[in-house]
Design a protein around this nucleic acid. Structure first.
Lengths: 343, 343
DNA sequence: TTGAAAGCGCTAACAA
DNA sequence: TTGTTAGCGCTTTCAA
């Protein structure tokens, strides 16, 4: 019996469907008594309005959607709550749409925008190295959040919010150098990666140079192609290889915290200690890093600020602002216990 | 210009809207040439069909929805892929809908069922201790997956798939006893919990009894009320208190792996070792437990089997089967490195 | 192989 | 304060 419609309710209550609609939608121009009576019947019948019909009719919603490519990404997950909370403050409703690895986020965005009559879209992840011209058909404001911006990347016709990957990576490695490390290995993205992985590697190389350290390509290790990219499994496998190579190093700089946790396992399992034998530095600033032993020193991405800035830019654009901005927010080095100072 | 409709396309192509619809939907009864021509125009115009209109018109879909309460739950996340893959095999489309802590999963289910004309719903998490009579209005088959079934819980008018929490918990603690442990502490759910926490605690107590060990209530610790329930933070806080209490114990049995990771931190931070000073046993069987040091001995819930069985029951019900079943699947004890054999 | 038209369930404008 | 009605964009008969 899932097929009761507004018509049935109207009939039962002996009113017009317009009146039922008014009761449902808290319309001011309705008699309290009538409303109560209708609501009572609705409850008794278990009537639920059909959202498709509603969306179809409504000329616009007040909804902003968050399109997440990589919903399992812990760093992203930490941001959902912030989005929800901040969007609620300014009276937008909020919708999270997960996009799988295989799905095309542009198609999803296009469809969703129409179906839900969205006011705006925030892309979280994905869209890395292609600007798709179909985006121009989207017809509503959208913004890219936490998307690594390769300098060679195609120009986009929208605003974006991210960190400056090259610079923050430089700072991280520079910190390791200042702590006395001279042999610093790095775990980065896949060898073919031209986004985050490349940018952070560039920062690494610049920091070495600035500290007069010669770059040793053997100390840079790429995520394996046959394992999902930024995972604990991949970190474990790559670190194990690095350790077995017999190459000397005192610090290991890793492109993401999750990968670093895999490195922890490989190091500890080999009988070595952190940070006594190897210092480890991560990137992202996941809370869970506090709960590893020793707690992970890392670069914390300003997720809350990124959320706020993204919303601000998007809302401005919804309000008519036409200038697109590329905003880079500063990250923060979190000194915890996994890096040792060398004399 | 996000407002192109099927009508516009029809006009441009000089055909009826019916023909455009046929082109979009791969309808057999359409001339190949016409179809190509229309598809070309559609692409050029960036036309995207409106799903609301489509859903409204369609008399039924072929979609099964997964309603997840607690999308951040790692154990659940591990199941998404399985659902996707298994549902695809039998040609159902698949939809994940996250339900937040505050949302009412029944309302969400009711709305979604109508909006998307669903064939069936799988509830993952939530719905623990209340059977809501509104569910009878849902009008389509649904099933409860991984929901702890308290024996006192209200009778439900649907099938369910889960493990036998009491029994598996008994096995886990019995194993610790067989390994020579006599002082076994337990970390369980909140003190007010009447679902998983209570059931697993009952298993714990029965195992102690079966092994002639006297129950010491001081060794049972509940998740703190001011911290999200099954989290690493809570595990850390509770374990820290337990350690500081000075109570003696050689093994710590923990209601969930994630909570156990928090316990790891508290133990290691206090200068003690696992398993030399304290053996630790988790519950769930998360892969990530392999990457802690030492790897976590735990009870693995048969997530893949649970997915398959849930789908099987649901599909049978969609096909007309009327008997509801409560299925309990066996869990598996994963012996890894965090439990030491005492002489 | 095609076009015209009905109607899915709802909201909102208009009339009463 | 209420009922009636047009029409949102689509699919699917029915007739041509």
């Amino acid at each position: 019996m899932g097929n009761i419609t507004i018509k049935d309710i109207a009939k039962i209550c002996n009113v017009g469907i317009g009146t039922v609609s008014r009761a449902i939608n808290d319309d001011p121009g309705i008699n309290e008594k009538t409303k109560e009576r209708i609501l009572k019947v609705i409850k008794e019948c278990g009537y639920v309005p059909n959202n498709s019909a509603r969306n179809l009719k409504l000329s616009d919603s007040n909804t902003i959607a968050l399109l997440v490519k990589g919903i399992e990404n812990q760093f992203f997950q930490g941001m959902f709550g912030y989005f929800q909370q901040e969007l609620e403050k300014i009276k937008y409703s909020f919708l999270v749409q997960a996009v799988t690895e295989e799905q095309d986020e542009i198609s999803v965005a296009l469809e969703l925008a129409k179906e839900k009559k969205l006011k705006g879209i925030i892309f979280l992840g994905g869209l890395i190295d292609h600007a798709d011209e179909r985006l121009k058909y989207i017809g509503i404001p959208y913004i890219l959040c936490t998307v690594a911006l390769n300098k060679d990347a195609p120009e986009r016709h929208c605003s974006s919010v991210s960190i400056d990957d090259e610079k923050e990576s430089f700072n991280a490695v520079n910190y390791l150098c200042k702590m006395g490390h001279k042999k610093i290995a790095m775990l980065t993205g896949r060898e073919t990666d031209y986004a985050v992985g490349r940018l952070r590697q560039e920062g690494y190389m610049r920091a070495l140079k600035a500290n007069g350290i010669e770059f040793d390509p053997r100390l840079v290790r790429f995520m394996k192609d046959d394992i999902p990219e930024y995972t604990i499994e991949n970190g474990y496998a790559v670190t194990k290889e690095l350790l077995e190579s017999g190459l000397e190093f005192t610090a290991l700089y890793i492109i993401s915290d999750v990968v670093a946790f895999g490195a922890y396992k490989a190091i500890l399992e080999s009988g070595k200690r952190i940070p006594e034998d190897y210092s480890v530095m991560g990137f992202d600033g996941l809370d869970v890093g506090n709960y590893y032993h020793p707690s992970l020193t890392t670069v914390k991405q300003p997720s809350f600020d990124m959320v706020c800035k993204s919303i601000e830019l998007l809302v401005n654009e919804i309000a008519g602002e036409e200038n697109h901005q590329k905003v880079f927010l500063p990250a923060e080095l979190l000194e915890r216990d996994s890096v040792k100072k060398l004399k």
